[in-house]
Every structure is written in C-alpha cells, then in structure tokens.
Amino acid sequence: MRAAASFDGSGGFAATELNAALEPARVMFRELLIERIMAFEAYRRLAEQSEHPQVEMVRIADIAHKIAGVGGTLGFAKAGALAGDLDRSITENPAKFAESGYLQRVADPLLEALLVEMEALLDD
C-alpha cells in the first residue's frame, strides 16, 4: 500500500529518508479520514435533498481535491486516483449539475468508491 515518494536520488536526501520525513503528513492524512468521510456523507445527503446542489458538490470537490493532491505522494495511490476522478467529474462539468440524474449517474458512484477506499484505509 505505502509507496515511497518519487525521488531522483541526486539530492542529499535518500529516498527512504524522504519517505520517513513524510510520515507526519501520512499520519495527518489518516487522522483526517473520519472527518472527511463524515463531511462527504453530509454533503451528499444535502446534495440529494437539493434541487440545485452546486454548493454541496463544490464542497465535495474541494475535499476530493485535497485528497487527490497528496494521496499518491503519501502512498495512498488508489484513494488519490479516485479522489482525482471525483474532483474532475464535478469541476469539469459544472453545467451538468442541472441535468436530471447527473449526480447519481456520474459523481455518486465515484464518491461511493472513494468512501469505500477511505474506510478500508481506516481498517489498515
């Protein structure tokens, strides 16, 4: 599961040393998992209840954006990739929110897959 950050090996740091230096960030990422899962679920509920869920979807995209930004580097590649897909599905199609069922059809399955992966990380 955990992978060393990409490293060219020419600096003073060894790749393993950098990997060790990233441990506090990795711990922080794990500590935020529950908070982020709960936020995702809360915004999803609000989005499902709203006729115009733009605000809730942007919030979901913001959280996904943060996970995507560090997941791969910290060794949580699958969560990072799923979060990137979710972020893209929302931010690259803002006009489609108005389309009936877009949320359920496109973004929700991605969010569900990400939530499953995040819950699996909680169990690690």
Binding site: A5, G11, A21, L22, A25, M28, L32, K66, V70, T73
Partner: peptide, 17 residues
C-alpha cells in the same frame, strides 16, 4: 490551505537543499 500538502511540501523541499 491544505495542511497535509504543506506537510508533504516542506520535507520535499528539505530533500532538495
């Protein structure tokens, strides 16, 4: 605004000098 990203960036910059 992401503390975790800063937690990645700082050690990575350290590794470069």
């Amino acid at each position: 605004d992401d503390e975790v990203f800063l937690g990645v960036l700082l050690p990575t910059l350290d590794s470069l000098g």
